[in-house]
Every structure is written in C-alpha cells, then in structure tokens.
Nucleic acid binder design. Structure first.
Lengths: 192, 192
DNA sequence: CAGGTCATGTAAAGCGTTACATGATTTT
DNA sequence: AAAATCATGTAACGCTTTACATGACCTG
C-alpha cells in the first residue's frame, strides 16, 4: 500500500537470482517446481537449495522483476510467478554481460587423488576405482535422466538446455575414459 | 602449560584441513608458501584463500596434527610447520575413506548458456565465443604454469600432483574442442 | 626510494546448506 | 492407514571471501 511498486533501485541480483528469473521465463512457475526442475537441469553447474528459492522469489517480486499470483490447489496455498518486462530486461542484460567469472570446481575426491602418494599401491588403485565409480554414476544419471528430458523439447521450444546437458554428459564420458586409462597405467606399474 | 598437548578429541577436520595437512606433508612449511603452492596446484579443484590458511594451521597445531617452530627470516617472524604422527594417521584415514562426496561445479557462464535461447543468434555466438576464450585462457595457464611445475619432480618425489594437473589440462583441452564444435554448428545454423 | 613480495593475522559480510516447522493432498 | 509428494517458509550454523591491519625485506 505504501510501497513504491517497482521499487528495487539498488538491488543486486546474483547468478542465483537470474537462475530463478530464467526458470520462470521458461514457464516454471512455482518455487517447488523451480527447485525440482533445477535438480534435473542446472544442478550440475549451479546448485541451489529449496531454502534459497522462496526468499529469492520474494526478493525478485519486491524488485518488480516478477509478478506473484495466488493460485491454491485445493486447500493448499500456492504462488504462481510470471516474469515482468523489467525482469526480461534484467535477464537479457545479464546474458549479454561480458564480464566472465572463473569456473569454480570443488571436488574432495580430486583433492584425495592429489595427495595419493601417501597411500600404498593397493590403496591408490582403490581410490581411483572409487573416483571412477562416482563418475560412472554421474554419467549414467546424466544420460538416463537429464539428457532425454532436455532433448525432448517441442518444436519452437528452448534448445540450449539440451546443449548444456550434452556438454555435461560428454565431459563425464571423457572423464570416464581418462580414469580408465589411469587405472590401466597404475595396474601396469604395479606389475613392473 | 595447562593444556593437554594432543588435546583435539572431538575435532572435525574439513577437506581444507586435509589440504593444509597434505601440503605440510609434502614439505610446504609456512602459511604463505602453502597458499602460493595451492594457487598453482590444487586451486582448480579445491580453492582456498589466505585468510583460511592461518586459522587452519593454528587449529591443526592445537589438535596435535602439526608442530610449530618459530624460524624468523631477519627481523620478520615466521612459523614453520611439520606434520606429526597423529597428522599422518589422520591424513591416511581420510585418503582411505570410502564416503564419496559429489563433485561441485559452479559456473556462471554455463548458466548463461543454459538460458541462451533468450538471446538473438548474434548474441548467442558472442556468448559461446566468450566461453571459448575463457576456457582457452584456463587451458593455457594449465599447460604453461601448472603442468610443467607438477611434472618437474625429482625421482622419488610425489607423482600424483602431475596426474591431477594432467587431468585438468586434458579436461580443458576437451572442452576447447567441444566448444569449437558448438561454434561451428551455430554458424552453420545461422546460414541455413 | 618506490613498489613488490614475504609474512601473519583479524573482522565483517555474504552465501549456502541443514535442520526445523507446518500442513494438505495423493498414492500405495 | 501410512508413506510419499506438494507446498512454503524460518532459523541456525558453517564455510569462504573481502577487506582491513601491520610491518619487514628486497629489487629496480
């Protein structure tokens, strides 16, 4: 009532904000659905938790980037969001922004590999075997769950989600071959 | 004086703790040197900041995993650390631990790619070009700075740092080819 | 002698995860 | 009838980053 509607003058949007904004733009309209869809699409390169989604939606709504409409299913409250003109503009200029942030990888298993010289030959092999197994699992999930969904897009639908999925899948495939090679080399070294 | 020397009964060590511990074990003895060496070795899969190093060293010292010796260079104070038996044990059981944490990737650029359908064909190409350029830079740095240092190891020295470096370098190389391919496909689509 | 590197820390702020809390609806 | 899923949030905690602070030593 007393709040200037578009408001958000000095509002700093994070990549997580744009993830939410982009999801709403793709037609994923509720907080719960955004989290569910993110889990099978963007989780590999930008993980989010459900606890981030709701405050972020409110923030974007307060800033005028989204509109909120109450649409209860039965007696259960539910909020449905739509992107505004302002939201589209913000998303567009983020997508065109040229400042490139570095990739950030965090992998405890790779850290273990780095220090693996402290292990016996047998334990080294076991460590690499665990790395391979985890990677194989990730690859499987990618190929079976994520890629097919991303590729099952109606004509005229978005096609970059499938590009991103294929990239991840191919990276996992490459890592799989690489780690197999490493295993073989270690086995060979053991015998000599 | 009144402190039980080994102390650390219920002390929870994080991957960052083991990174520090492992570095000291490899003969990197001061906080400053650990950060410097981490920057050209483990930064790609477990980034740390200098502000983490010193408190972590103190924590590990308090827990009896490291010994501290004061060794000033000129009038400048300096602490040199050594790993203890207890530290070796802890590092070993972490390395042999079978619980596998998931890889965690965070890449704003990939997130942009995922939502690139909102862009014009020209802007899509520009986005991919930026991705490629960043990747090429990472690959270059890997090949020119990190790999050679990791591979320049005296006989009997650790050889897994070089394995880890080669893995990263090869991943970047793979991504480079993949992104080149994507660029070509987009160019081809544009003409048709 | 100025700027860079060596060297060690503290404080504040930001971001994200886990756990907590609640309750309706749907599926088995 | 129980379990899973839908649905929305809050609170506490932990890890990391950035900024602040200090000062000696070395190189051009």
């Amino acid at each position: 009532m007393g709040i200037d509607p578009p408001a958000g003058g000095a509002m700093k949007l994070t990549p997580t904000s744009f993830l939410i904004l982009g999801m709403v733009r793709l037609g994923v309209r509720t907080g719960y659905d955004i989290k569910k869809f993110a889990d099978i699409s963007t989780q590999n390169f930008w993980p989010i938790s459900l606890a981030q989604v709701y405050p972020e939606l409110s923030k974007l709504h307060d800033g005028g980037f989204l509109t909120r409409r109450s649409d209860p299913k039965g007696g259960r409250p539910r909020s449905v969001y739509t992107i505004t003109e302002r939201g589209e503009t913000a998303l567009g200029s983020w997508l065109r922004s040229t400042k490139t942030e570095p990739v950030q990888l965090r992998d405890e298993a790779m850290l273990r590999l780095f220090f693996a010289d402290a292990l016996s030959a047998a334990d080294q092999l076991a460590l690499v075997a665990r790395l391979r197994e985890r990677n194989r699992g990730n690859h499987e999930e990618m190929r079976r769950e994520i890629l097919p969904r991303a590729e099952a897009v109606e004509p005229g639908g978005p096609h970059y989600p499938a590009v991103a999925a294929r990239f991840s899948a191919d990276l996992f495939a490459f890592a799989e071959k690489w780690l197999m090679q490493l295993s073989s080399e270690l086995e060979a070294d053991k015998k000599s």
